[in-house]
Structure formats: C-alpha cells, structure tokens
C-alpha cells in the first residue's frame, strides 16, 4: 500500500489535473503525462463489450499536444466552462517496474458544463482508470483512461476530461 506521503502526492496529482482542465490553461494538460503516456476517453458500452474504439485515443504526449492545438486553434465550438468534481482515488495496486514504482488507481468524476447564457448541466460522468509512475518531476500518468457512463454526448465534447 502507499505511505501517507505518496498518497498525498496522488491526491495532489488528481486535484492539480482537475484544476488545469477546468482553467482553460490547456498547455499545462500534456505535462501530466509521460512522453509515451496515453490519454483515452471511452464510452462505457465499448469498454464493457471489449470494443477498442474511444471517443479520443491520444497515444503519446505529442498527440495530446496536438489535441491542445485543436482545442485552442482549429475547432469551432460554443465556448463553455467546465467544472470537474473528482472523488477520492482508490489505489488498486502498487508495483515495482523497470520505470520504478507504478501505482494503479481509479476515481469517479463528474464534469459540469456551463455555456454562455446557459444553465449548468451534467456533461460527463465516469471513472478514471490510471497507471501512474514516479519521475524526477513528480507523479505522471503512464495512462489515463476515462470510461464514461454518459454515452450520449450532448452534441460535442471539446475540452479535456
């Protein structure tokens, strides 16, 4: 199991991530990942059925940066605020790998969306399933998989979950 210091770092990783993706400071989002880290956002029906298709499947930090460019520069969309509420992470395993300590953890999340002149609505509910490793710059995601229950996307999803 994790010692208190490590669990505290894990909590900090989760809350910092939520802070960044809610802040519109998208450039900081890739920095939570290893260079070969992956970010996947997958509808639960595909996950449960063992089907590989994701809503987004970003297979490297470079590809995550490409998404940031898309969000900032290329995708025309209704602007909105988003607000993450992330549950307490549950540590599933801690193991030693050739990269050092690797933590497998998961946490529930809800994302609210508020459009200009709109009321706040529940936008996306799901669960993070993460593999996290310790680096000299702190904990980073080797992989973050967001499996979402909200299979019917309310039109479009632009910003990172």
């Amino acid at each position: 199991m994790l010692d208190f210091q490590s669990y505290s770092e894990l909590l900090d990783l989760y809350s910092s991530y939520a802070g960044v993706v809610d802040s519109s400071d998208w450039e900081k989002w890739p920095e939570f990942f290893l260079d070969d880290g992956t970010y996947r956002l997958q509808p639960r029906e595909n996950f449960d059925a063992g089907l590989p298709l994701c809503l987004l499947a970003l297979e490297s930090k470079a590809m995550i940066r490409d998404r940031v460019f898309g969000v900032k520069e290329t995708m025309y969309h209704d602007p909105y605020y988003q607000r993450h509420v992330v549950g307490t992470p549950r540590v599933l395993s801690v193991k030693t790998t050739d990269r050092g300590e690797e933590i497998e953890a998961e946490a529930n999340y809800i994302v609210f969306r508020t459009k200009r002149e709109g009321v706040t609505e529940v936008f996306n509910a799901g669960r993070y399933r993460d593999a996290i490793v310790r680096t000299t710059e702190g904990l980073k995601f080797r992989s973050r998989l967001c499996v979402y229950d909200s299979e019917m996307i309310p039109n479009s999803l632009i910003y990172p979950i």
Binding site: C54, L55, E59, Y76, L157
Partner: peptide, 28 residues
Amino acid sequence: MKQRRLIQANLFGPAGFVSADDGEVIEW
C-alpha cells in the same frame, strides 16, 4: 491497420478534430 483506423478515428465523432464542428454548426 487496425491501430491506424483507431487513431484516425480521432478526426471524427462527437469530439473529432473535424466532426465536432459539424454538430456545433447544425445546432447554430
């Protein structure tokens, strides 16, 4: 090829680099 199809799928769908805009302009 399977992996290529899955990665190119990032261009399409409700969050796609290309297709997300289509849903938005239809709403507007």
